[in-house]
Design a protein around this nucleic acid. Structure first.
Lengths: 138, 138
DNA sequence: TTTGGTGCAAAACCTTTGCATTAGG
DNA sequence: CCTAATGCAAAGGTTTTGCACCAAA
């Protein structure tokens, strides 16, 4: 038996704070961003702990992590329905969009290649109307 | 007139080496990995130049960049058409998959919200057949 | 009491940048 | 010539880690 006894996970207010922070933010946010956000809400905890809590939450399947194009990890509670984001690559303005067939498609593609437990992370980066106007006037 | 004359792009053996390296490797590889790989093939060039060359190639649309789950950027020659990746989250085994409607969908969704120049980054992470077997036997 | 968790700061990592030098056109 | 591109090393930004102390069970 390789399985040594699994260490018991303790509940700390810090980990709760991270969960609550994510819930309050209700959108993808970076670890550092979340740390700052919590600070503004009066929750004072170490940055390392935010990282560690997020790892735990991801491991437990309560939080979803994606990589932004510039290499930061973004986290968000992966509870409510799976939606995707349309993000302005210039000003950051974000809109939620739906991809009804994506789920089915990902699952189909995955099993076609013998993969199981598919999970898709997708973001559409574009220029919002505002920034399109500004930018085209280059 | 903001538009100064566009600087001419010069051809250097370094940039060619990067292209050839990617072709030889024929799979996603990180910038650092590519630098090492080139070194082993006797091509000696600066790491910074590898990064710079990759940026240029991505900008020119010859190379595709994706973000690995652990925060590195992975590059590969983007042969023809826009494809996506199905990546085993355990062993890293990757398969190319196609999403014929994705392009249309992203564009439609974007313009529906007034966004322009959409670019979608999407990855499907799952467990390959091999790792599914191993993991389920936990 | 036991031993996960935390905070802090240092370290590890990938990537970008400043600057003098080289070399493409 | 002119100046883009390179190489090197230093700097930047995110994430991880070592260690002493604290607190959940």
């Amino acid at each position: 038996m390789v399985n040594a006894m699994k260490a018991t996970r303790r509940n700390t207010w810090q980990r709760e704070a991270v969960k609550k922070g994510l819930a309050d933010f209700a959108d993808s946010i970076s670890a550092q961003g979340l740390h700052t956000f919590l600070g503004q809400e009066g929750v004072d905890m170490g940055l390392a702990t935010v990282y560690r809590s997020l790892s735990v939450l991801v491991e437990e399947g309560l939080v979803d992590a994606i990589q932004s194009p510039d290499g930061e990890a973004l986290y968000r509670l992966c509870a409510s329905g799976h939606h995707h984001h349309l993000i302005c690559r210039n000003c950051g303005f974000t809109v939620e969009i739906e991809a009804p067939d994506m789920e089915k498609w990902a699952t189909a593609e995955a099993s076609k290649h013998g993969f199981t437990k598919p999970e898709h992370h997708m973001e559409v980066f574009a220029l919002c109307a505002n920034c399109t106007a500004k930018t085209s006037a280059k």
